[in-house]
Design a protein around this nucleic acid. Sequence first.
DNA 1: CGTCTATACATAAGACAATTATGTATTAAG
DNA 2: CTTAATACATAATTGTCTTATGTATAGACG
Lengths: 110, 110
Amino acid sequence: MHSPELLKGTLQTIVLKVLKDHGKMYGYEITQRVKELSEGRILLTEGALYPTLHKLEAEGLLKTEVVNIGKRIRKYYTLTAEGRSIAKDRVYEFIDFIKTMSSVLQVNVG
Amino acid sequence: MHSPELLKGTLQTIVLKVLKDHGKMYGYEITQRVKELSEGRILLTEGALYPTLHKLEAEGLLKTEVVNIGKRIRKYYTLTAEGRSIAKDRVYEFIDFIKTMSSVLQVNVG
DNA sequence: CGTCTATACATAAGACAATTATGTATTAAG
DNA sequence: CTTAATACATAATTGTCTTATGTATAGACG
């Protein structure tokens, strides 16, 4: 785990991109996938994830589908067309940010 | 300019590394150097910079020297030994963060 | 001269995202 | 029968940053 401060501002980008790559997912599944992909280094907290999902839904970037698994509920999220577009933009923006930071810090990442 | 959100958590790293690379600098000079290095993409605001400098000084990572330029004052900052050490750590931490993010977002930066 | 921009410091109010804490509830393991 | 994992959600608090404000010198331009 690195400084959690660095993660700030990346949550929406992560959620959008993971959903873009893995299709229909539910909240808990997203936390697990991110944990896997980051080899345990990024642990999304529920207090951050759920409000973010609700916000992205309110903005029309995600659509939901509630499914009953036995007596438990699951809320599946899928990107809308706009969501896919924004996901791409956010990833580009992140890459651009890294390039700028590399210039400022004079380091070579990748 | 990218989303200012991404910049969160990077300010201390930027200040420490720029000071490490360029030696003795004063606040305003740091903003200009970062602007240059980032080709105008990162504009440090005074409201963020000065409190950060004061904080790093209070933590013993920076030491200061006040100089009079005509009737105007300048406060030069230099890294302490601990500051140099932490600067290195912070840059490593940032690189590590980028590597993790690259795995999660499945992108290739650099 | 007078005004605008750049230089140079600093602090305070407010916004915003994320952490931490808390709450509800089902399912599986020991 | 209690703990851990699954699965949702919201509220209080924290912390960093932006925006606003304040003081003051120096140089450029008319």
